[in-house]
Design a protein around this nucleic acid. Structure first.
Lengths: 120, 120
DNA sequence: CAATCAGGCAACCTTCGGTTGCGGGAGTCG
DNA sequence: CGACTCCCGCAACCGAAGGTTGCCTGATTG
């Protein structure tokens, strides 16, 4: 099976800006839209939107404190995302290695695995 | 360091459709825009565009044969993409575990490891 | 040669990442 | 208390990207 993944999680970590935001939250522990936007090449609003996406994906949780809103990583969900990332990587890697080995074997002139692999 | 990655590679594998295409190419060995679109919920044109993107990212190579154009995975580049995927995952995972452990230690009331855990 | 199948090109729609502009509530200071 | 300053949320607008439809060209095959 092709490692069916939550598309939400993927799209969440698929965006480069969101990836950096997660990175920052992971490093700093928490942050606000403004504090994050300080260190990012985008405006506060853009960051706010991303935080909304991340929140809907369950990756971060918001806590309004006075006039600011602190966002914190949701460790559990984030761990799931990371796991899925690894899963796909591992799955692809495994298959890649298999076909690579077969290819090498064929090049050596010997049949690595008689089972044909054709398909269209 | 945040595992600086080729943004091209990331965006290439970041799209769900492209991910599935890569998956199919990885499994079948090769394919055409039409053959791939058969098993995907999008039109041939959409697939063709994606193949263009993948090709520009160096992940696949095209070989015109008669009236059809076969696309094959570029193993080397694909391997790089997979590697970067794993790198980010691993990096995040590592940090997650660190902070998780620290958090647990704090909850236990004892200082996990006074050694600095600085960063930005 | 005619019919057909696979592709490429172009126009158009929608979504998404991003920006600017604005208004309003929480703190701060006189 | 009142004025000022932050930080935030909402809305309008933009350009790029994923998708679709329509059309036209080139290779196959009868």
């Amino acid at each position: 099976m092709t490692a069916v993944i939550d598309d939400d999680l993927w799209s969440a970590i698929g965006d480069p800006t969101r990836r950096r935001m997660l990175d920052m939250l992971l490093a700093a522990g928490d942050g606000t839209a403004t504090s994050l936007s300080d260190k990012l090449p985008v405006t506060r609003q853009a960051v706010a939107k991303h935080l909304g996406v991340l929140q809907r994906a369950g990756l971060v949780s918001a806590t309004p404190i006075g006039r600011e809103t602190r966002y914190r990583l949701n460790d559990a969900q984030f761990a799931r995302a990371v796991a899925q990332l690894s899963t796909v990587g591992a799955s692809w890697d495994a298959r890649l290695q298999r076909i690579t080995q077969i290819a090498e074997a064929i090049q050596r002139g010997q049949d690595a695995d008689p089972r044909r692999q054709n398909k269209t």
